[in-house]
Amino acid sequence: MSEAETMLSVDNLKVYFDIKPEGAMLWTKPLRLKAVDGVSFDLKKGETLGIVGESGCGKSTLARAVISMVPSESGRVVWMGSDILGLPVDKMRPLRREIQMIFQDPLASLDPRMTIGEIIAEPLKTHMRNLKPKEIKERVQAMMDKVGLLPNQINRYPHEFSGGQCQRIGIARSLILEPKLVICDEPVSALDVSIQAQVINLLTRLQKELGISLIFIAHDLSVVKHISDRVLVLYLGNAVEMSDGDELYMRPRHPYTQLLISAVPIPDPEIEQNREVDLIKGELPSPINPPSGCVFRTRCPRVQEKCAKEKPVLQTIEGTHQVACHFPLD
């Protein structure tokens, strides 16, 4: 894995939003919401990076900032050797071909007035303008076949499909240009469990066939564990731990990760009923006014004085295992 070339390198990425409090006057200084506060990671070719965290911790914002869909405050995003952060729109457009995205709500991500043939063909029409209608149709039908849709359904509309099928359409659309990286923004959260498995298996199969990299965002730890090579844990816009998937689940070092993993339900009613889960106490603090020092200190069971004063940085502690904690678990 380590020999493979690095495709995407994100360095100290920060995304801040200015928020005007209600009833603000023109001269009122806006509040700063630190949605993503200095996150760094690398992604290698063919690798899957899972990003997990509570809702509102900045997972989606991070992914969108990487592809310049939301403006970033500072940091660097290096894609195939060149910095792409803050590129003008027309310079960014050719890159859109290489990085595609799959969305959370399968039905909402498909235009209800277009047939699925038109939907899947849209990236082709945008980036390969000299294709003839017949070639486009052939490619669309081949892609539909690949994602497990019947090619003769090409003229149907999104509302005539189930959620899982709609997600397949979304996957087909994202893969038709043969991108190098696909960002999956909670692609299975809106589906029920059996369909989740189908869609995830489809994604892993296509990843192997096409050799694409994935950034897989989810809040379901077991899903992320299944699909990811490495996992990044976010808390309140900060990376708290990053490690190889299995290592992270076997030996979490950050107290937050440990609490998250202990909360994953076990699919056995007897064990599930009798075990004690350490719940994370308290609420997620507001990103407008994050705690000083370590952002997790207000809810951490191992909190000490140092945590309020110094902000821990992401440090490598063993092999590829990185953790941002003054007092990591063993």
Binding site: R96, F103, A108
Partner: peptide, 12 residues
């Protein structure tokens, strides 16, 4: 809506 975002991500 997400389908507009999808089009934006595609570079339309």
């Amino acid at each position: 809506k997400e389908f507009v975002e999808a089009a934006l991500v595609t570079g339309v």
